[in-house]
Design a protein around this nucleic acid. Structure first.
Length: 920
DNA sequence: ATCCTCACGTA
DNA sequence: CGTACGTGAGGATG
């Protein structure tokens, strides 16, 4: 949405209604006005477009440079008022008088397109007015504003790359004229102009009329430069005097002047900036405001301006924190260390929802809990752990574990894990604001409490406790532990109330209460448990892979006759494409790709021996890297404790970090050896574990596709337990199932899975190394046989475009606003996401439900076996002695029963002493 | 120190 | 010109 304003016919308000020229602080107002197009162009040429583009191919170098410049200017100049003026593409009075005006400029480069609109959007998000006026140039707007503001005794800074602005300079007005790029913008005051052009600012336009301005395609008098022009101006008191005394100027330049006198008069008419336009915006509307946080978040997200976002928020952050409204403060808190008052306080909450936030402190070993803040809508308390008497701890422990004491926590799983080692069990969770925030907006970058509070509540929490400023306070012995923790608990409570309505509106309440919240405790337990590894095996693998690396590396160096860093794509590009002169591969941002696909291609084409060694080297380094990471992650207890991120994947999947146990190699033999290091653990409190068990869904995504599309063919294939790809292949190729060759089967398999991702015939052709024609025929035949699949896929996108979101079988939504973007790449990306989200997301729903079921069944039966890992469609369990059969039965039952689809959910189960052995 | 790009592992 | 992730190295930037 643009803010370009239509020309106005009414006169603007008289100057008397302008705001007082002085701010409350008694300082003079400072207006910063910017020539938008001119600075956008400067920024464009200062930064290489190829380094600034979004994933969708929109170039952003001008937007970036402009925004960075603006942030710097605001920081340095501290204006009280800001505005940006833009030219329109319509004719101006200048081009109407002189058709050649600004002609001869080279066409705007392709990469510049769209960037001015984006700059306007940025201005909107920053709450800076943008002004343009039909028939006039931005410079005229600047001149009018500068004149008005100066008349009110304001200071004015005009930012423009156009020298015509120099005529505006006076005691109050300076011009910031970029020398080079957009970082070096010297101030041009009267003195600077006089030094450079030998005339005072008010006569600069006289001089420019004589000399000419090539940027505007205004030719001057041949042979006359600034020095001559200045001499004449001085002599005759200005251009008027010169033109009156044309005849008395001698020499060749005198003749030239007489010959071009009309040009000079025209130049002077055109370069005079108008200072009396009727502008539709008052000066007081330009008062500097804080950016619209959420708009900036969203916009900078799509522009991928991560650094700038930080710089912008840093700039406004401090002030904003000061301005946090009084209504957004927690109730005053009491500090409770004794049992009686604690009991009384907890009782007085009357079982109203209480937000719980842990005060923590970073220690060498990790994070220590120092106390707990408990905040209800009417009261707040802080319970420090130090000095807490045993009885009080009992009271606290009881309350924390009380299912009837409803609690709001931000990141419940983390709190649960922090309390567990102290023997404290956290229960009664009614909301986790990280998760509810995620369900409402599943594609946010961060669900940090401070970010969410800022975004949803406009509440600034300030820096997280435990940073540098906290440290300083600690040294001074006055660290306030309770205050920040209470504040954060309060923020979580506010957020929870804020989210309640939205959750209902978005149909996410059940998903939260019945799936995600209970799951967070299950995940917490899995993370605490961890998975046992054999350090000996890890070390052996490290050795083996290192040997392969040295051999392959040495051989690679021998072949090319020198040593380079094989891990540097840049150096590889030089060797491959320049020195060895191999054929070019697919283009990437920084040149030509050296990825495995490209290298394999090159092997086929050239058979160069270096490539093979390089691939072997790459393989081995990747594997070693994985092993090294695992090695570093082994905890004291000999187990690896991953962390599951429950609010990261926009589709509803979990992700695994520190380390990622969801991407342990499985496809190659060498890679699979890594799965041998994950072993059954020893067990502790009397329980002995005998084996690992893996249980996975077979072809869950295709089954969901069959269910959602209702395709009779697919459904009956699954119901009859046929080999899906063979079945589909026989239909597409028109042969009996047993006549489907492995080549046919793999084509069909690729296509089936491709469909789930929104694969195009082009993509299919590339993946199968067949012609686009053949791929197209293949797809056509597929859809002919399985028409409901095509209808379903089409319907998904249509529905999502209409609703703005897709839904999974459990009602989990993914919002896809870009489905109606006019940027094709953006739109098509969203279309593919729309195809995939219901399927991937439904699979995520199903396995999450299954995990709750398995966990519940294990507990109900009093078994000691436990879940360790989840890898999207697979669960890994550690089986206690004698429990194998009963666990296998319950796992099958719970996993298969996690959803009621029109096709069965097949589960395959295996056991073994290592993850590798347990695979099947 | 911090950010981005490339490459590559999984489902 | 196939979705969803996380990690680490190199290299450019501050």
């Amino acid at each position: 949405m643009g803010t370009r304003l239509a020309p106005v016919s009414e006169t603007t308000k008289p100057g008397s209604t302008l705001p007082a020229p002085r701010t409350a602080k008694g300082q003079r107002n400072r207006l910063l006005v910017i020539d938008g197009h001119s600075m956008a162009f400067r920024a464009f040429y200062a930064l290489p477009p190829e380094n600034f583009s979004t994933d969708t191919g929109q170039h952003t170098n001008a937007v970036y440079g402009f925004t960075a410049m603006l942030i710097n200017l605001i920081k340095d100049q501290k204006p009280t008022h800001v505005a940006v003026a833009f030219d329109l593409d319509t004719p101006t009075f200048r081009s109407e008088e002189y058709t050649e005006y600004k002609a001869g400029r080279s066409r705007t480069p392709e990469e510049f397109h769209g960037q001015v609109d984006l700059i306007i959007k940025v201005m909107e998000a920053m709450r800076i007015p943008t002004i343009s006026l039909d028939g006039y140039e931005a410079d005229d707007i600047l001149a009018t504003l500068a004149t008005k503001a100066a008349a009110e005794d304001w200071d004015v800074q005009v930012v423009s790359g156009d020298r015509d602005a120099f005529q505006l300079v006076n005691d109050r007005v300076t011009v910031l004229y970029p020398k080079q790029g957009v970082t070096n913008i010297p101030q041009m005051d009267a003195q600077a102009i006089e030094e450079k052009y030998f005339v005072p600012p008010h006569q600069y336009s006289d001089l420019a009329a004589l000399v000419g301005e090539s940027a505007d395609n205004l030719p001057g008098v041949p042979g006359v430069g600034p020095k001559t022009a200045a001499k004449w101006i001085k002599l005759y008191g200005g251009l008027e005097g010169i033109l009156e005394n044309l005849d008395s100027i001698g020499g060749k330049v005198g003749d030239a002047l007489r010959a071009h006198a009309d040009d000079v008069r025209r130049n002077r008419r055109l370069n005079r900036l108008l200072t009396d336009l009727d502008l539709p915006v008052d000066l007081d509307a330009m008062v500097s405001q804080h950016p619209d946080r959420s708009a900036v978040e969203d916009l900078f997200d799509s522009l991928q301006f991560n650094t700038l976002r930080k710089r912008l928020f840093d700039l406004f952050g401090e002030e904003e924190a000061e301005e946090t409204g009084d209504e957004m403060t927690p109730p005053p808190h009491v500090v409770l260390t004794e049992a009686a008052p604690l009991t009384a306080w907890l009782k007085s909450t009357n079982q109203a929802p209480a937000a719980v936030h842990l005060a923590t402190e970073a220690t060498a070993g990790g994070t220590d809990v120092t106390g707990i803040a408990i905040v209800t809508s009417t009261a707040a308390a802080f319970v420090p752990f130090e000095g807490l008497d045993a009885e009080a701890e009992q009271v606290l422990a009881h309350w924390l574990a009380d299912l009837d004491a409803p609690k709001v926590v931000h990141d419940f799983k983390e709190a649960y894990k922090l309390l567990a080692p102290r023997g404290l069990h956290l229960a009664g969770e009614v909301d986790d604001t990280a998760i509810s925030g995620y369900l409402i907006q599943p594609d946010r970058r961060s669900y940090d409490l401070a970010d969410l509070s800022q975004y949803h509540l406009r509440l600034s929490l300030g820096a997280a406790p435990g940073n540098a400023s906290g440290q300083l306070a600690l040294e001074l012995g006055e660290k306030d532990v309770a205050g920040p923790a209470v504040m954060r608990a309060f923020a979580a409570l506010q957020l929870s109330e804020h989210f309640a309505g939205q959750l209902v509106e978005k149909g996410a309440n059940r998903l939260l209460g019945e799936l995600e919240l209970p799951l967070s405790e299950v995940l917490a337990e899995m993370e605490l448990t961890g998975v046992a590894v054999s350090v000996e095996r890890l070390d052996r693998l490290l050795d083996d892979f290192s040997k392969t690396i040295s051999t392959a590396g040495a051989e690679a160096f021998r072949i090319i006759g020198k040593e380079i860093n094989l891990g540097s794509p840049k150096q590889l590009q030089t060797v491959l494409f320049e020195e060895l002169g191999l054929p070019k591969t697919k283009k990437i941002k920084t040149g030509y790709s050296t990825d495995a696909d490209a290298l394999t291609d090159l092997i086929v084409k050239t058979g160069h021996p270096f490539l093979e060694q390089l691939l072997a080297y790459r393989d081995a380094t990747k594997l070693r890297q994985t092993v090294e990471g695992l090695r570093k992650s082994v905890a004291e207890d000999g187990r690896i404790h991953t962390t599951y991120a429950q609010t990261v994947a926009a589709t509803g999947r979990l992700s695994s970090i520190n380390p990622n146990l969801q991407n342990i190699p499985v496809r190659s033999d060498e890679g699979r050896r890594i799965r041998e290091v994950f072993v059954v653990g020893k067990g502790t409190d009397g329980t002995r574990y005998e084996t690992l068990m893996t249980a996975d869904y077979s072809q869950i995504e295709m089954r969901i596709m069959a269910h959602l599309s209702g395709d009779e063919g697919l459904i009956s294939a699954f119901r009859e337990g046929e080999d899906l790809h063979r079945f589909v292949g026989s239909h597409i190729f028109g042969v009996a199932p047993e006549e489907v060759t492995s080549a046919m089967r793999s084509k069909v398999k690729a296509m089936s899975y491709g469909l789930v991702y929104g694969l195009s015939s082009f993509g299919l052709s590339k993946q199968l190394a067949i012609s686009v024609d053949e791929a197209r025929t293949l797809m056509r035949d597929y859809f002919e046989r399985f028409g409901a699949v095509r209808d379903y896929l089409r319907g998904i996108v249509e529905q999502a475009r209409k609703d703005g979101y897709t839904s999974t079988i459990e009602g989990r939504r993914r919002y896809l606003p870009d489905l109606s973007s006019d940027n094709r790449q953006l739109r098509e990306m969203s279309e593919r996401a729309a195809l995939n989200a219901p399927i991937q997301g439904s699979a995520a729903d199903i396995i999450k439900k299954a995990m709750l079921g398995v966990d519940g069944a294990l507990k109900a039966k009093g078994l000691s076996s436990r879940m360790l890992l989840q890898v999207h469609d697979e669960l890994v369990l550690e089986i206690a002695e004698g429990e194998k059969d009963v666990v296998e039965a319950l796992v099958r039952e719970q996993m298969a029963g996690a959803a009621d689809l029109s096709v069965p959910l097949d589960v395959s189960v295996g056991t073994g002493l290592s993850w590798h052995e347990a695979a099947h």
